[in-house]
Amino acid sequence: MTGSSISDRIMRWAIYGFVGLVVIFLVAPILIIIPISFSSARYLIFPPPGFSFQWYKELVERPEWLRAFWVSLKVAGLCVVLSLAFGLPASFALVRAKFKLTPLFYALILSPMLLPSVVVGLGLFFLFSKLGITGSVGGLALGQAVVIMPIVVVMITSTLQGFDRRLEQAALIFGASPLTAFRLVTLPIIAPAIISAALFVILLSFDDLLIALFLSDPSTSTLSIAIWNNTTMQISPVIAAVSVCLLGMSILILGLVAIARRWA
């Protein structure tokens, strides 16, 4: 094409300018947290009047934050185990078995993820109250697993769909037992997807607030609940310090996922 007209060029720059503003919109609320977390002020003020580690110090010194982090870690770990234990075999069956009801099963397994967490949380709250297991770490992990496991199924089934089954069949022909073929052929190929799925489960479990609001008690307050309690009352810069730690965790996990993908 020959040189574009002036109006076309103006149009193009208008689009670039607009998208540039959207990019600023996307990164601003994340970046703003970092300077605030080092603020020397006792309350939220921008720009921070000076540099200080006081909020990070408060995080380490106040036992409630460490306790909440510990609860979140336990819940996330248990949630990973549960999501994989239920999600992995299900993913294999969904991709490989040609049941007439497979689409229905798929829809059922994914549906908790599509509903608002409040709805699922309330339903679980009624059930767990009846069973008397609200406020337990196990119950909390089980509740989160219901809404988080669908992600595992989505990730693993999409990997399995691209998996060449002839590799497995070759192993079987050469005399490997199904279990050996799985361990030596299938598992190494899908391991990166499993690791990525597990890491995302950790991220989502730490992120969950609603299931935890319904299912935890003060002794099992997760980090999300501690943040929630501290932002509804006042906007303390200590939340910025927690947020920076959580951001660090997200970046670490995304880095690990990238490494797992490259390894594949």
Binding site: L26, V27, A28, P29, I30, I32, I33, I36, L44, I45, F46, L203, F206, D207, L209, S224, I227, W228, T231, I235, I239, A240, S243, L246, L247, S250, L254
Partner: peptide, 22 residues
């Protein structure tokens, strides 16, 4: 970016931007 950061963290970021002394 918003996908992979905690919803509470993002929302707090907006509180910092929009608050009276933000």
């Amino acid at each position: 970016i918003p996908f992979f950061t905690s919803l509470l963290v993002r929302t707090y970021g907006w509180m910092v931007i929009l608050s009276p002394e933000g």
